[in-house]
């Protein structure tokens, strides 16, 4: 771990301001991914701004019927919140399917969104990786790719986003609220928050340097039967091969977002118009531009079959 200076921020604006004045700094909250990467010097900030003390750990009901989730709400608390369990069940389920109890106790809402990929080549600093070292090449392509992306991939990167929570939030049309170093704030729809790798896989979100996530908001509950189905080899404590976040309404319409297959939570709203016709047409549209490798081509039928199982369960 590279030496760094450390300070605690007193407010969100103060944190963004501090970050603006210290190039190369990072915010630290749960630390469960950042410290992991700092130990390997994949992340090497020279300054850490500890935001744990900020007043961003509340879940508030909004006048419009939605929920505002503070950036520092721990995954455990968000999953256990009775409003989330009742009205946004897929979010609770997605959180509970992720990581371990210990990690969920530390990991925050904002940090979860900002998790970096689990591509093993990204994690091995001896290996070329465009995400870690822009321009060095992608050693995953042509290598061990079983876990890696099948859609939205580029010749520069086939990594996936590892979050479960973000997949559910994508299906729920969440919005990410931020504050910037100049104290201005903005709200970014989650669909636009994560980026595809393209030629710049090291740029993973639309956040600007120093920009701090303050909250994630969920619109008014949409009802329906909600599912988060995570498929993995090991029964727990494993990243998804494929995951499906879905809501199915009594009339058979609904929404689907898919995890484990792309650089971001994968959702194509147009595909959902086919929900009444079953999983196959939905999956076909979701995966129309898929470019799998031999080792991860199984994810295509897996998405369809998992979605089919979810839809079948919704009918019961």
């Amino acid at each position: 771990m590279k030496p760094f200076t450390y300070e605690r921020a007193s407010s969100a604006a103060d944190a963004a301001d501090k970050a603006g004045r210290a190039p190369g700094s990072k915010f630290i909250a749960g630390g469960t991914n950042l410290l992991d990467l700092m130990k390997l010097q994949i992340e090497a900030p020279n300054h850490l701004i500890d935001i744990n003390g900020l007043d961003l750990d509340k879940i508030e009901s909004m006048p419009d019927g939605g929920l505002r989730i503070g950036a520092l709400v721990r995954n455990t608390d968000l999953a256990a919140d009775m409003r989330v369990r009742r009205d946004y069940a897929m979010l609770s389920r997605a959180l509970l399917a992720g990581a371990s109890g210990q990690l969920r106790n530390k990991a925050t809402t904002a940090g979860n969104l900002l998790q970096r990929t689990r591509c093993p080549y990204f994690y091995d600093t001896n290996m070329p990786c465009n995400k870690r070292q822009p321009g060095s090449g992608c050693s995953a392509i042509g290598g061990y790719t079983r876990q890696l992306g099948v859609v939205g991939v580029s010749d520069a990167c086939i990594a996936t986003h590892p979050s479960d929570m973000a997949v559910a939030m994508r299906a729920l049309d969440a919005t990410v609220e931020t504050v910037r170093a100049d104290k201005s704030s903005r709200a970014v729809p989650i669909a636009e928050f994560h980026r595809l790798p393209g030629d710049t896989p090291h740029i993973e979100t639309v956040l600007e340097p120093g920009e701090l996530i303050t909250a994630v908001t969920l619109p008014k509950a949409i009802g329906g039967k909600q599912y988060y189905r995570k498929v993995r080899d090991r029964a727990s404590y494993a990243f998804a091969l494929v995951s499906i976040a879905a809501v199915v309404q009594p009339d058979g319409s609904g929404r689907v977002a898919v995890g484990g297959i792309a650089h971001k939570p994968w959702r194509i709203e147009a595909a959902e118009t086919n929900m009444l016709r079953g999983a196959k047409p939905v999956a076909e549209q979701l995966l129309a531009d898929a470019r799998p490798t031999r080792a991860n081509a199984f994810k295509l039928p897996l998405v369809e079959r998992t979605l089919a199982a979810v839809l079948a369960e919704a009918r019961t």
């Binding site: 093993p120 290598g143 061990y144 727990s236």
Partner: peptide, 30 residues
């Protein structure tokens, strides 16, 4: 039977999944 495999990168010559997140061994739930 169900999960353990050191994945070989046949070009670069190493076991790719060299930690406990990527080399899966059974957990309680299994």
């Amino acid at each position: 039977a169900l999960m353990e495999e050191l994945a070989v990168d046949k070009r670069l010559g190493f076991f790719v999944n060299h930690d406990l997140a990527s080399y899966e061994v059974p957990v309680h739930a299994d």
